[in-house]
Structures are given as structure tokens and as C-alpha cells.
Computed example of a mutant assay.
Amino acid sequence: MIDTAYAMTMARYNRWQNRQLLGFLELQPAGELVLERGAFFGSILKTLSHLCWGDHIWLSRFDGGSGPGIGASESVSYVADLAAWAEMRSRLDARIAAWAAGLTDAELRGTLTWYSGAAGREVSKPLSLLVVHFFNHQTHHRGQVHAMLTATGSKAPVSDLFLMPDDA
């Protein structure tokens, strides 16, 4: 389905997108980030918080490292403010890059089994499918943030993968 080059490219894309996003978020008055906007998670900050939580829970499954320590229902309060998001995001992005760099094609052909709190049971799925889901989940929620930023009157980051700089 995919190979390690895909995971490494998407890890770079994720980091590039988040770095760009931070620049636009820092220009926003604090009130704009917490304003309820009718999005699935409500505000820009809550959506960003959920995304950090989601990345953290999936990484714990993928690399066996630490997880977020809270459940999905608390994901919108995982980061308290923009500074906490930026710090958490930087750590997660570095961890994603390291995990992707160490991933093998043989692992991608395997299966991952974990206990899913959302499903309330043990789940087994092809790792390649879960890796695609992981990166798709990021893109989906960053798209929501992009729309909410646009609603503030702000510009938002360019998100076209083909425009990612080689050094990103």
C-alpha cells in the first residue's frame, strides 16, 4: 500500500505545515484562538489540542513510547494555550520524523494490534493503513484550522504538498 518513503515524506510535510501554521497563529489575538466557531471541536485551540493528542496516542502505538495519559474525551484540553501547543507540536513533530526514519517496509506490511478506547475492544489492522490514517487525520484537522483561520480574516498556510520546499 505504502512504503517508508511515503512515511518520511508525510513526516516532513507535517512538520512544514505545523511550522507555517504557527506563524499565522502567532499573529492572532488570543481571543481568536479560543472563540467557539461551530467546528467539530469548537475552536482553533481545541482543534489543535485534539490533533496533538491524536498524534501522541498514535505515536505511542507505533513506536511504543509514551502516550498522552488522557482519553479522547479530554483531547480538547490537552494543550492549554498557543505556547503549550507550539512546544508540544515541536516535540511531536521531531518524534514523528524519528519514527518515520526508522520505519521499515517489512513493518509496514505487518499488522498492529492495540486496545482501542473508542471501539472499547482490541483492534488489529494493517500498519500501512494506520499510517495513512495517521497522516490523513493530521491533514483533516489542519484543514479545519485553515478554514477557521480564514474566517478570522487571516491568511492561512499554503498546504499543497507539491509546493513543499526540499529543505522542509
Rank of each mutant, 00 (worst) to 15 (best):
E87P: 05
G143K: 13
Y13F: 15
V145T: 05
L27F: 00
A83E: 08
F162R: 12
W16V: 09
N18F: 03
Q144S: 12
T113M: 04
A30P: 15
A80G: 09
F162K: 01
G102R: 06
S49T: 10
I44C: 06
A101Y: 06
H137C: 09
L35D: 08
L163M: 13
V132F: 05
K155W: 09
F162E: 11
K125R: 15
S154H: 09
K46D: 14
L33V: 11
D105M: 13
G143A: 13
N18D: 13
G31N: 07
G153D: 06
G23Y: 06
K46Q: 15
A11E: 03
S77W: 05
S60D: 02
G143V: 13
A94C: 07
G31F: 05
T47A: 02
L22F: 08
V132L: 13
E107F: 07
H140A: 10
D160H: 00
L21F: 00
G23F: 00
L161T: 09
A147M: 08
A72C: 10
C52F: 00
L127R: 03
L103H: 04
T4W: 10
G71H: 09
D3G: 15
G31L: 03
S66F: 01
H141N: 09
N136L: 10
Y13S: 12
E36V: 04
G31C: 11
I2N: 10
W16P: 01
S43A: 11
G65D: 10
R37N: 00
D55I: 07
G153P: 02
S154W: 08
V123R: 06
A97H: 10
Y115H: 15
A147V: 11
S128A: 15
T104H: 12
R95P: 08
M10Y: 14
M8T: 13
F62C: 02
S116G: 04
F134D: 01
I57Q: 14
V34I: 13
E74A: 13
L108Q: 06
L27C: 09
Q17I: 07
L130T: 03
M8H: 11
R12F: 06
R15G: 08
L103P: 05
A39Y: 04
K125Y: 05
G120H: 08
Q17Y: 09
S154M: 11
N18Q: 06
L22R: 11
S43Q: 02
G31Y: 09
F24M: 06
H146M: 12
G69T: 08
P165K: 03
H56F: 00
V76E: 15
G23D: 12
F24K: 02
L161V: 00
E26S: 13
A5Y: 00
G110M: 13
R19L: 14
G38S: 12
R37W: 05
G23P: 05
V145M: 07
